[in-house]
Amino acid sequence: MASDSMQRTLVLLKPDTIQRRLIGDVISRFESKGLNIVAMKMLRVTPELSKKHYAEHVERPFYPGLEEFITSAPIVAMAIDGLQAIAVVRNMLGATSGLKAAPGTIRGDYSGSQQMNLVHASDGPEAAQRELDLYFDAAEFCDYDPVLTGSLRAGDE
């Protein structure tokens, strides 16, 4: 990644995205925005991985339901690069609750639930690095510059 404003973030398409067959719709939103998917895989989250990913929530009363949900079906994990990717992706997702998310956001358009809110995205650079390390090995990243990059942003961005 060339400049300081370029970032990499983790995005998880949760079990409800997979079950509802919204994978392509959600991915196309990120691609249409000009973000680069540099790693992607489908997997089952194990209880162990869930505890690592949601470590700050393990002792909270809602955690058992969260673990049950995230391990209930496959997910798609993606590493996404772009200018200010962490904030851009989180803005694209909308509020955590699909009931409160603005129309035009992924959750606002597709979710009507607090927990079944389709997508997870890292909330900051440290979280992004920690979470990317949970889901991907360094060799799994496929960095590239799309040929249309010059049409998506200025050369000094």
Rank of each mutant, 00 (worst) to 15 (best):
H120L: 09
V45C: 03
E131W: 09
M1N: 14
A87G: 13
L152D: 04
T149Q: 13
L118C: 04
E31K: 11
S122Y: 08
A39V: 04
V76G: 02
T105K: 02
V26Q: 05
L152N: 08
N117V: 11
G155M: 09
T46R: 00
S32E: 14
R8H: 10
A127G: 12
A101S: 12
D143I: 07
R8M: 11
G65C: 11
I86K: 03
P74E: 11
I86A: 06
E48W: 02
V38I: 15
R8Q: 14
M116G: 06
R153Y: 10
K52L: 07
A127I: 10
A85E: 01
E31P: 09
D123F: 09
A39T: 03
M92C: 07
Y54I: 00
T9G: 09
A154G: 06
S111C: 14
V26A: 01
R90L: 11
T105C: 01
T46L: 01
D123L: 10
A73L: 07
K41L: 08
V45M: 09
M92G: 05
M92I: 11
M1D: 11
G34F: 03
D4L: 14
D25L: 13
R20I: 09
L12D: 02
A2T: 14
S5M: 15
A128S: 12
G104A: 07
G108I: 06
L43Q: 10
D109G: 03
M42S: 12
P74G: 08
D16P: 05
L22E: 01
I75T: 09
A79T: 01
F69E: 08
H53D: 04
S28P: 00
E56G: 02
G150E: 10
G98K: 08
M42I: 13
P125Y: 05
L13I: 11
